[in-house]
Design a protein around this nucleic acid. Structure first.
Length: 671
DNA sequence: GGCTCCCGTT
């Protein structure tokens, strides 16, 4: 009987089937099977709870096993599923009780070290591995390498790899991941090409690496190789074509794309129409599983290029059907939102049959980024009927209020977080609230809130306040905050720059310049503003005054032309945004003013815009990514440009999206 | 005898 239970529990564990597993547990208790602890069964139950990510349940069960009965395998199971610090604690207990140590236990402990990413702990465990005599155990060494990779010690990982007699495909993938992550995707490709054998993980890492570095074309080529192999010549594999939105060409794919995205609506039926299509989709060498899909999608979110993500979406729908599961669904919502397609994100979200708190958070966060605070507030009301909000929910909500100027609503949430929703107030919530008050100019209220904080404010909290001091010209408060900030984070240049700009704005050029000289002498440099744009599957990066692009001459000609057109349409450069280094005083002379204007005109986002305008068909939308906040002058220029060139221009800056259309911006000039 | 390494949603 116990054997049957064990076998069923293992199936539940594999399928993460919580309810049936719990029912089996109950049945085992009722039938008395557990009263005389059969070790097999207890361990199977432990493993079941561990597999279903219910470490607290596993822990309770573990505590019930008499000490004399607890063996290495019980410990290992617990080490595997617990929080890394608890895992280490269990490992120590296990050693103190002198229980035998096997490779599996070591692998699990190494996993905990990996998750902690502590670069003192990993080398120590490496020493342990040598001491315990596991130097010929490939899987254990893979764990050691993974630990090194996770804390950035790729050289160490490589050294371990050299010592492995017969590296497995996993050994290779661990090295591959480390190299892609820490040494760049090109070095990673060299490793990838050398691999004697590749599994889906290796492909995923490589594709992710390409997406993350802006090499969309290469990512598509690898997706093609991964799924169809070398025979892909004859098949109509999706070809990349940014301009027409036809990411998926060929007979299978056009059908899907037409239905899925052209009219922004979902067809109701499963899209595989015939056997041939099914074979094409499912008969690949490697199917993309949910882990692979989530992994690539998260890289897409970061890169901001929607094309790979959209392909993955189509693929998943064809392979699985509409219900892709909570994880993939959430990744999709996040990906579309971060790639500027908030309406598609909303659509995917609304069609998800099951949603958890994370899914809702991703949606609310997306709405916040797009300045859709009112929608976020409305949706939150529905959220509480479905799932329990958590700390992250309120960060998203407060930031949504912040980007839409909803002060009262924000205060309401802030007060309700603890007493109504039972969520502990964290420093991030204070940061959001201070940001909200600062943006709308309630600086006294913001300052009062900072003073009342039970936790000492961090640089994010004070940074928001300082930013508002700049916007609203509160020099004295700014100076005060600056003193605290310098103590907290002396290397951060942004605050120094902000204060020096403030001095300049208030006509205190001498103070501005002396602050900048301090920065210069200390060797602290400003983070350069950088804008990127995807054109034809390739990411192009521009810094201010950039002249490195092969088509620089054309870009600058276009820029001159654009400035003329903008001026005719009423644009005047906002010289307040640009303060020069050196002894410049605003009233000095026209020459200096022209210089300031010239610097403004060559801001990275304007260069990216010009490049986009000249290299994409007229009328197609442009999406630009900026690493810092967009400046006021560029914001103004983009508005007019969207009107005179009849283009939708989407700019994702460090904080949010701006969608410029017909002369106005989705942020309604509030950001 | 079971417990196992690499890609993993905000």
């Amino acid at each position: 009987m116990a054997r049957i239970f064990r076998s069923l529990l293992r199936r539940c564990a594999r399928a993460s089937a919580v309810r049936p597993g719990e029912q089996l547990h109950a049945a085992a208790v009722v039938s008395g099977l557990l009263s005389n602890p059969s070790h097999f069964l207890l361990n199977a139950l432990l493993h079941f709870y561990a597999s279903c990510s219910l470490p607290s349940h596993a822990r309770k069960l573990f505590d019930k096993i008499p000490h004399s009965h607890k063996d290495s395998v019980d410990y290992t199971t617990l080490i595997r599923c617990s929080h890394p610090l608890d895992s280490l604690r269990y490992f120590l207990q296990m050693r103190q009780r002198a229980l035998p140590l096997d490779g599996v236990a070591l692998i699990c402990v190494l996993g905990a070290c990996s998750r902690l990413g502590d670069n003192n702990l990993v080398p120590q465990m490496h020493v342990g591995v040598v001491k315990f005599g596991f130097l010929r155990h490939t899987k254990v060494l893979n764990g050691v390498m993974d630990g090194y990779v996770k804390c950035g010690l790729v050289g160490e990982a490589r050294r371990v790899f050299e010592e492995i007699e017969e590296p497995s495909v996993v050994s290779w993938t661990v090295v591959l991941e480390g190299v892609v992550k820490w040494e760049g995707v090109e070095s990673g490709r060299a490793v990838f090409d050398k691999m004697p054998e590749r599994n889906e993980v290796a492909w995923t890492i490589m594709i992710k690496g390409y997406v993350g570095s802006g090499f969309t074309k290469e990512a598509f080529l690898l997706l093609k190789d991964m799924t169809f192999g070398n025979q892909s010549q004859g098949t109509n594999f999706p070809q990349y074509n940014e301009s027409k939105f036809e990411i998926l060409k060929g007979e299978v794919s056009t059908f899907v794309v037409q239905q899925c995205f052209k009219h922004d609506c979902f067809p109701r039926k499963i899209l595989v129409r015939n056997q041939k299509e099914k074979e094409m989709v499912l008969g690949c060498r490697f199917g993309l599983n949910w882990v692979t899909i989530c992994s690539i999608l998260s890289a897409c979110s970061q890169s901001g290029d929607v094309s790979v993500g959209r392909w993955i979406h189509c693929y998943a729908v064809k392979a699985v059907g509409w219900d892709l599961g909570v994880m993939v669904g959430t990744s999709l919502v996040d990906m579309y939102a971060r790639c500027g397609r908030i309406n598609v994100a909303l659509m995917v979200f609304r069609h998800m049959p099951r949603r958890n708190t994370v899914s809702w958070n991703a949606m609310l966060g997306g709405l916040a980024m797009h300045g859709m605070g009112k929608v976020a507030v409305e949706m939150f009301a529905c959220m509480v009927d479905e799932v329990k909000p958590d700390a992250m929910t309120f960060m998203a909500l407060l930031s949504a209020c912040s980007h839409s100027g909803l002060v009262e609503q924000g205060w309401q949430y802030f007060h309700d977080i603890e007493c109504v929703y039972g969520v502990t107030l964290e420093i991030e919530h204070y940061a959001c609230m201070v940001d909200l008050l600062s943006r709308v100019g309630c600086l006294e209220e913001a300052e009062a809130l900072v003073k009342k904080m039970p936790i000492p404010p961090n640089e994010i909290v004070l940074g928001s306040l300082l930013g508002a001091c700049y916007t609203y010209g509160k020099l004295r408060l700014g100076e005060k905050i600056m003193r605290d900030l310098v103590l907290m984070d002396p290397q951060n240049t942004e605050y120094h720059i902000l204060l020096s700009n403030m001095y300049a704005l208030c006509g205190k050029a001498d103070k501005a310049n002396s602050l900048r000289k301090i920065l210069k002498n200390r060797g602290i440099k400003k983070v350069p503003g950088m804008s990127s744009i995807y054109v034809d599957g390739q990411l192009y990066r521009f810094i201010a005054g950039d002249k490195s692009h092969p088509r620089t001459t054309d870009i600058y000609r276009k820029l001159d032309d654009m400035i003329c057109k903008l001026r005719l349409a009423g644009y005047a450069p906002n010289t307040n945004c640009q303060v020069l280094f050196g002894g410049f005083n605003k009233d000095d002379c026209m020459e200096a003013l022209e210089e300031v204007e010239q610097v403004l005109f060559t801001h990275s986002e304007k260069l990216a815009l010009c490049f986009g305008l000249m290299s994409t068909p007229s009328g197609s939308p442009l999406c630009i990514f900026k690493n810092l906040r967009i400046c006021q002058d560029c914001h103004y220029a983009m508005k007019i440009a969207s009107d005179i060139y009849k283009r939708e221009i989407v700019v994702r800056d460090r904080y949010r999206f701006h969608s410029f259309k017909q002369g106005s911006c989705s942020c309604s000039d509030f950001w």
